[in-house]
Design a protein around this nucleic acid. Structure first.
Lengths: 219, 219
DNA sequence: AAAAATATTTAGACAAATCTAAAATTAATT
DNA sequence: AATTAATTTTAGATTTGTCTAAATATTTTT
């Protein structure tokens, strides 16, 4: 139906639009995809011709209903494959992104549905990101970052904002994974770094930024 | 490492060479791949430059050691994914080829090894074709076609030579699958068509050609 | 509001993978 | 062995996705 490159661009636009709520700029797409802005412009023209995006020169883009659907379907496939890789093949959470990046482009509706069933309809991927259902609906849940927890309070890790491999490896070292409990012991007034208790066992110091990347439910 | 198209050409050469033992012709590759002979010539030059094949103009091609390794690795991945699709996702044997054709190009050595382990090191795929191991070695077993069975003798279906969807659907209708027992009741002298007993329950008539496609072990 | 900086697009080029039509080579047939 | 037929290659073109460098538009700063 659509080429890998077309799909990649649609996904990039979706992901950028998710964070910044305004129209997505050419440069932001180029930065996200590690390509030249001129290449993005070419692709935007093509996607606009196919009515996958709304595009006006110099004004940035937004996804059309169809474009959005394609992007969400890709995210759905990506996250389902990540669940498969971690749950079934026993990959670690920092290893699965690149492989899922390829698997998300495999074409077969039936495959996705059967995979989803086989995995018992997971609602979240190994990084805690929601997996959209067949109709593109994401499960919502209330979550806070550890940076928002008050000293003395505890949260259970639901997910991570940062997906960088080195960040995930750093969490592995600290024995932090999904389901881990984090108790905030102390907050430094100066730089908002935090002393935390991990699973009631390990004490550690994390920066404000790290705390911001860790998503928890309050307990 | 190699492009999808390069990989597809190497696999085609391997598959054709498997049947006809001489050097593989440009036209046979074009026919196999549904492309123009001129396109094949272009690709052969590229593969020869990369030392994946031995190629002399007008003389046909043979795979180099490296080319052969790449082709076998693709077949390995294809067949492992087919096992996954049938055993785990409950696809039927006639549905898996197209999907595996895409999955075989996913790049990750680790993925293949983990998948193989997860599937408990299968030696044959859902059509009974052998799955090469990590080192490219295929498991051999003695097998005959039903056409070779003498009347009164019985075989257990190990595999099929023909992979065409309509042929597999025809076998489904006849309740023939891997493991099914086939007893030859009668052979027609005129056209070598056979009356067979399927799993000791259903009697049916098959042509000589169909019998030739059915691979069994003698019991 | 003009100048400077930044962002975006256009123009033109290139590599990969394909094609058709014509030319060249090899194989088959009389 | 010469002619015909079949196969294969070459030449030249096309599409897709990318690039760099230059031109243009927009935004920010003075």
């Amino acid at each position: 139906m659509f080429s890998v490159s077309e799909e990649d661009h649609l996904k990039a636009i979706f992901k950028i639009a998710e964070k910044e709520k305004k129209a997505v700029s050419t440069n932001s797409i180029a930065a996200y995809m590690n390509t030249a802005p001129a290449s993005v412009t070419d692709m935007l023209k093509k996607l606009a011709d196919k009515e996958l995006i709304q595009y006006q020169k110099y004004k940035g883009v937004t996804l059309s209903a169809t474009g959005s659907k394609v992007a969400i379907q890709l995210i759905r496939k990506h996250r389902l494959w990540e669940v498969f890789l971690v749950e079934k093949l026993k990959f670690s959470w920092e290893e699965v992104h690149e492989i899922a990046e390829q698997l998300e482009h495999i074409q077969s509706e039936d495959l996705v549905l059967r995979l989803e069933k086989y995995l018992e309809f997971p609602k979240f991927d190994p990084h805690g990101d929601p997996i959209p259902n067949m109709d593109g609906k994401f499960t919502l849940r209330s979550q806070w970052s550890v940076a928002e927890l008050l000293p003395g309070h505890t949260g259970i890790i639901l997910g991570v904002r940062e997906h960088d491999k080195s960040f995930l490896l750093y969490l592995n070292d600290m024995k932090i994974k999904l389901g881990t409990s984090i108790k905030v012991l102390q907050k430094t007034a100066y730089d908002q770094s935090l002393r935390i208790l991990i699973d009631g066992r390990f004490e550690n110091l994390i920066t404000k930024n790290v705390a911001h990347q860790l998503l928890v439910k309050k307990v």
